[in-house]
Design a protein around this nucleic acid. Structure first.
Lengths: 165, 165
DNA sequence: CTTTTAGTTGACTAAATCAGTAGGTTATTT
DNA sequence: AAATAACCTACTGATTTAGTCAACTAAAAG
């Protein structure tokens, strides 16, 4: 399992999608605007996410993407694996080539390490991230209500998921 | 924290070093041969490892590298961080640029994820890896002794850390 | 003192990946 | 028919990866 910005972009985009899909399909153009990720790059990422059946697409006007499963059944590990092409941790390239007496020393080492990281990221679902995000939202708005007791709210972005640069 | 083959090479090399340093300094040429990592690439990696004070060098004949600390005090996280240049997880580049109402959505997400992975890899020390490796060695040799009760041993590599391609 | 060993440094390279651009096509709604 | 938005391919510049090459310094052995 490899960890780069690519996977992070994908998780960010999926989180944006998850937070908004209640109102129907979410367009990539919208995600692109809110999260400041280029549209074409998103198209590439969502092509992979769709092929891995993490999202479903709806074409035409009013179309966009929806999650293919409920947020609590989509893990961060799945998202990252979908977009980051695999990394052959062992230089023997998987398992076949180690044909000396014992497998190359790093084999079990990396297999174990990969497992560890993968398990950890598998324990984190989109649903969990949403819950955390909303909890934070709530804390913030409670706080704001306390400080500014009058509450002059005219927010056009009630979900509060617009990226701040 | 980023995870690529570069960090894995470094950990592999450090493990080879740790398993052999009892007999004095270990040369990069030796590690190169055993683990099939190019000498020049190892030189680059060990330059960084030395600057981060994870290893110490001894020049001249009989020289090579030693661990700067005991194996149980060197973590996999340290090794990876030493060779992999850092990855600004949040596209706002750390913490300054998020100057809208709230920080960019991914900020806490990635900060938390980074922390998680880092903590996990910080819990794994070279010493631990050595113990696991030796335990595996022992199981294997016990097994071999059972199967081949005569024991025709003329191994030139008692440590058994030579990479199998 | 010379030679050999082995680390140290810097410049350079081919290949791969990252992030994005451009330009088109298909499907669906209005 | 026009507009929308997914889908697809090819291309690009920048960075990273993994590695080569060459010159240098420090220390030991002869």
């Amino acid at each position: 399992m490899r960890l780069t910005t690519k996977g992070r972009f994908a998780v960010t985009a999926m989180l944006d999608l998850a937070l908004r899909e209640a109102n129907g399909p979410v367009t990539l153009a919208g995600i692109s605007e809110r999260q400041h990720i280029s549209l074409s790059y998103l198209e590439q990422l969502f092509g992979k996410l769709r092929r891995r059946e993490l999202v479903e697409s709806v074409r035409g006007p009013g179309g966009g993407y929806c999650l293919a499963r409920v947020p609590h059944e989509i893990t961060v590990a799945e998202i990252i694996c979908a977009v980051d092409e695999p990394l052959d941790a062992t230089q023997c390239g998987g398992k076949e080539n180690c044909r000396d007496e014992h497998r190359c020393m790093t084999h079990d080492l990396w297999a174990g390490l990969n497992r560890t990281i993968y398990d950890h990221l598998s324990a984190v679902t989109l649903g969990k991230l949403i819950d955390e995000h909303l909890a934070k939202q709530k804390r913030r708005s409670d706080n704001a209500a306390l400080i500014d007791a009058r509450g002059l709210k005219d927010s056009k972005d009630p979900s509060g998921v617009t990226a701040a640069h």
